[in-house]
Amino acid sequence: MSIIVDKLNYIYSPGTAYQKHALKDINLEILDGEFIGLIGHTGSGKSTFIQHLNGLIKATSGGIYYNGENIYDAGFNMKSLRSKVGLVFQYPEHQLFETTVFKDVCFGPRNQGLDELQVELRAYEALKMVGIDNDLLDASPFELSGGQKRRVAIAGVLAMKPEVLILDEPTAGLDPKGRDEILEQIAKLHTESKLTIILVSHSMEDVAKYVDRLIVMNRGEIAFNDTPREVFGHYKELERIGLAAPQVTYVMNELRKRGIPVSIKATTVEEAKQEILRVMKQ
C-alpha cells in the first residue's frame, strides 16, 4: 500500500496575469506506515501539493497512484479516496460549524454513509484519541480554547478512519504547550494506530523529533528527500532557500569547529546532550 506521485505538475490560473507554476515535476513515493515531514517556505507549493493527494485539486499533468490505482482514472471513486486520505487543513478550527463538539465530529463519518451507531462510536473514539474530555462533548465548539478547537477539528477527520493522515501546519498559532500536546498526539497516532502521517510544517524543530523522512520543497520542486539527519547536514543550502536546520545542528557544528570532536548528526536536544556527554567523558 502506498502513494506514488508521478511527474506531477500544477499551474494556477493558466492564461492570465496570475499564472503560476506551483508544482514542477514532483516525483515521490510514500510508503505505508511512514511518518513524513514536508517542509518548505511560504509559497513553496507544499499546501498545493497535499491537496492533490486526496483529489481536491486536479493536477495539470502527471499522475497519482493510490495503492496502484490512478486517482485520475474515469471510474475512480474520489469520495472513498477522501475518506482514506484524511486531510487536516491549516487552522482546521475554522471549519467547525455544528452546535456541539460531538455533532461536529459526526459530520465526517455520517458523510461516509455509516449507520448512526457506527457514526457515534467513531466520533467518540476519535475524540478520545485527541484527548477531549467527556464533559466537553456537548459544549459548543465555539466556546473551546484554541488548542481544544484544533483537536476537535483533527478528531473530525480522524473519525473517518483514514489510512493516511495529512496535517497542514497543525501547530500554527498555538502556544508551546498546545504545540507539544498536538505533536505528541500525532506521534501517538502513528505508533499506536499505525497511520501513515504527512506532517506539513515550516519549523524544523517540530518535525526533527518525530519524522522518519523529511521532504523539503522549494519553489514547487523537491529540494531534499531524505532522513532528517541527512537533510540537516545540508543546513547551508537550507538557509539559502529560507529555511534553517534545528538550533542543535548549529551548536554541534560550532562545537566541532572549535575543536571538540562531537558528531554533527544529532537532530534533537536529547541526542545532542548524549553526544556531548559522551565526548566529555572521553
Binding site: 491537496q51 486526496n54 481536491l56 469520495k79 477522501r82 475518506s83 484524511g86 486531510l87 487536516v88 487543513f89 482546521p92 475554522h94 471549519q95 467547525l96 460549524f97 459530520f107 465526517g108 458523510n111 461516509q112 473530525g156 477527520v157 473517518m160
Partner: peptide, 29 residues
C-alpha cells in the same frame, strides 16, 4: 469548501433541499 469536502461533504449533487442543506457547513464557518 475544500476542508468540508475533505470530510466527505458533497456540494454538487442532490436536489434543491439537499443542496441548500449542504451549504450549512460552508455558511456557518
Amino acid at each position: 469548501m475544500k476542508a468540508q469536502m475533505a470530510r466527505g461533504a458533497d456540494f454538487e449533487t442532490g436536489g434543491l433541499v439537499k443542496r441548500a442543506k449542504s451549504l450549512i457547513p460552508l455558511l456557518v464557518p
